[in-house]
Design a protein around this nucleic acid. Structure first.
Ligand SMILES: [Mn+2]
Ligand SMILES: [Mn+2]
Ligand SMILES: [Mn+2]
Ligand SMILES: [Mn+2]
Lengths: 217, 217
DNA sequence: TATATTTTTTAGTTTTGTCTAAAAATTTAT
DNA sequence: ATAAATTTTTAGACAAAACTAAAAAATATA
């Protein structure tokens, strides 16, 4: 499997969890920042290899084989991110691009030894789940901070936007995975929130709150 | 720089240390298991990018820029090999192919953090020197075991052949980097050696002895 | 329903890296 | 010095992965 094929599988996998039904050519093109015609070419190739179900004009979905491959790529991506943060002291906003390269390294033994070296983590530095060697994922129930009611409290367990801009903003505000956040009040006008985080009071916009995952406590 | 360009630079670099003078198209083709015509094509491209000095029919050599790039690839290859052996518990005969992939990961920060994580090793698991961030190499004087005289003793500091067959043979015989080897006697007929290694006596062929580097003591 | 708009596919190019076959240059042998 | 052998380069082709422009299909609108 080529890097390009792997990137397409991964894109389809990620779109599947957001869009539920069949994935459109255009959705893939947008996600991969490429042209729809290139996507069509690749879908044919992936279909030939039994990695996707594809019918002209009808969108695409992963076969079992394709799903498993996609999960293994995501597994590698997230394990490498853990390695970079935990072992090499990268910060969580620096690791994505490097992991994009490392996820294509081919060696089952390597992934599994890396997994063991890292003590079989179940989540990456952004709170995303890491599939195990069989492809199984531990789902943690979580919701957006913006969905919490006034006076409710949550533990920050993930980010929806993983851009370094957003992650660096969170660093600046002292928000990280594990932070305890209480909604003090919600401003009706712009849905901004007054929160207390580890005792510290501050105001955050709705945009921020709808990119933070929390586990209610 | 593409993977392929990097592989060519590395091949030329390795051939340079063996062949001294200008490197021939055929030597590169043989090393890379490709056709001479493919090599010619690539040499033109590398010359265009000022990575090699190339004159038709006259062979090729690395420019300063090309030499530095090659050293950085070798640096990555050998650091990753150290990582795989020291941290992930791979054996020294399993790491080369994985390092061939990892050497192409592009991130200066990654290499340097990995280097620090490994405590700035100067040699890889096969005894080959690791260029530092500036490309400098610590040369250790070493010679082939086959060059030692009777009654002389050496410490094993490297292997010339890094094939897994040879490395596994060494494992089986209990020979590793750091082993103290004394030449007890040399058989004139086939140049085989009776040696004692860490007290243990055994006989090895000339082929083995001329693939083992030692530091005389 | 008929028409307009959007989405998707097809057709034809381009770039990279490879190949084979043939031509050109260099080296070796007579 | 000439001929033979070897090495290297050129010419032309191909596969992968991208692109643009145009055609076809599906969807939305009047
Ligand atoms: Mn990532
Ligand atoms: Mn992540
Ligand atoms: Mn190696
Ligand atoms: Mn090595």
């Amino acid at each position: 499997m080529t890097h390009s094929e792997e990137n397409y599988l991964k894109a389809i996998y990620h779109l599947t969890s957001v869009l539920e039904n069949e994935i459109s050519t255009n959705a893939i093109a947008e996600k991969m920042e490429t042209k729809a015609s290139s996507v069509t070419d690749m879908l044919k190739k992936l279909a030939d290899k039994d990695l996707v179900h594809y019918k002209k004009y009808q969108g695409v979905s992963l076969t079992n084989k394709g799903l498993h491959s996609a999960k293994m790529i995501v597994r590698k991506h997230r394990l490498w991110e853990v390695f970079l943060v935990e072992k090499l002291a990268f910060s969580w906003d620096e690791v994505h691009d490097i992991a994009e390269q490392l996820e294509h390294i081919k060696s089952e033994q390597l992934v599994n030894k890396l997994d063991a070296f890292l003590n079989f983590p179940t989540e990456d530095p952004h709170g995303d789940p890491i599939p195990n060697a069989e492809g199984n994922i531990i789902k943690v129930e979580k919701q957006l901070l913006s969905e919490l009611q006034e006076k409710q409290t949550g533990i920050c367990v993930g980010v929806k936007d993983t851009s370094s801009e957003f992650l660096q903003y969170l660093d600046k505000q002292g928000i990280s995975l594990g932070s305890k956040i209480e909604i003090k009040s919600r401003e009706i006008f712009d849905l901004s929130l007054k929160i207390s985080i580890n005792g510290n009071e501050m105001t955050i916009s709705n945009k921020i709150a709808s990119n933070l995952f929390v586990r209610k406590v």
